[in-house]
Write a protein that binds this DNA or RNA. Sequence first.
DNA 1: AACGCTGTGAGACTCAGTATCGTACGCTTG
DNA 2: CAAGCGTACGATACTGAGTCTCACAGCGTT
Lengths: 228, 228
Amino acid sequence: MARSPTSQRLAETAIRLFNERGYDETTVDDIAARAGVSRSTFFRYYRSKDDVIFPDHDALLAKVEARLTASTADTAIVAVCDAVRIVLAHYVEDAEVSLRRYRLVGRVPALRHREIASVARYQRLFREYVGDWLAGTPDAALRAELMASSVVAAHNQVLRGWLRAGGSYDPFEPLDHALQYVIRTFRHLENLEGPRDGGDQVVVAAFPRSASPDDVMDAIRAHLGSRS
Amino acid sequence: MARSPTSQRLAETAIRLFNERGYDETTVDDIAARAGVSRSTFFRYYRSKDDVIFPDHDALLAKVEARLTASTADTAIVAVCDAVRIVLAHYVEDAEVSLRRYRLVGRVPALRHREIASVARYQRLFREYVGDWLAGTPDAALRAELMASSVVAAHNQVLRGWLRAGGSYDPFEPLDHALQYVIRTFRHLENLEGPRDGGDQVVVAAFPRSASPDDVMDAIRAHLGSRS
DNA sequence: AACGCTGTGAGACTCAGTATCGTACGCTTG
DNA sequence: CAAGCGTACGATACTGAGTCTCACAGCGTT
């Protein structure tokens, strides 16, 4: 958290060298030497070579968790959508670093794995939160998994687009747009008793005046998603 | 694919040693020695130490891809749901190995990362497939990402449950159940012009006879997912 | 001046992963 | 039978990540 000037310089040197020579071609010795410190010092600040690219993910995860537990949203899915903004905000905050890292990660499989692994931690956090919220309802675990993965997917999609575009616009509008999809998609799932149980379900229907009964039946069949 | 007896013995020895002493405490030398071969031979069959736990993932991915391109489903989401069965089938096929690996992966972060990374490859494959299918429609990339991640999430949820239960039941029924959720949830998204555009949309509504106009309005508001 | 604390450097060590060379075995082909 | 040939394996050396231990310098306290 409290980044010392030394660790700062190490991170900057590392990114620069990775971009110049490539990740695999840069040794920790190179980074340390160029930053004017010893190899020991590097590993004192960063537990591994790739840590220097992905710093404070733990801190960010903690922030997200705090936001979740403090949430006053009336729905789990809304709370999670709200929390995921923190993540995007973090990327936008230092866009420079995010962009450099994005280009790097795209070229180095090892870093891509690392990135994917940290995303999975957010998804897990969300899954557990939603799972607790839905506890006791039917298919709670399944719906929690679906909601969490969808929120993360929406976030990733928006983030990737923004990074590909070189961070040239405000990504929060598309994020809201994407999260609307998710919220609208899962609201009904959240209030549902079960997939086949119409319990206290409320559904809205609108047909063109010209629709024949057969048209209506076809539409209903399509919406029920009858399997082959 | 064509597993030689030597590679087979190496894999078995490795899993046994990992369970006995732990993953980090077992060196490649240990595995090779116990299997009666040299270190060189180990790396001839497996590119890395963790490869011995996750073999033929490439082959499985190819099978899934083949199934996708050969699919005759009338909807992208249905095709993907169909394809994901292959993955589950693969785990079920040698349940013994899957279960041992599951227990191991749960304890070793490095292996968990590896697992997550390979899951991400399926998700990416699905995303690209759905993206091609939806190409040209509004929010194609976003919807593709959501569908792909949901199918994968449903699969993972079912698989984890099955593994936790020690593989004691047939997981395809819960998988169908979960995929029904996904299909029913995303059908309407697939046919949608856009989130706000009611174009040729058909919606079904049902209210209890006792519902007042206000009840109806509240329900509609809730379903529209109006934000804070 | 003795003490402790903190940040740093130095060096040894383990182990994963790569590359190279040598060699034994079994196979065909003349 | 012998000469050649490919495949599988062993042996060895090397690079580099990551861990650990010790030493030392600076700096403030009492």
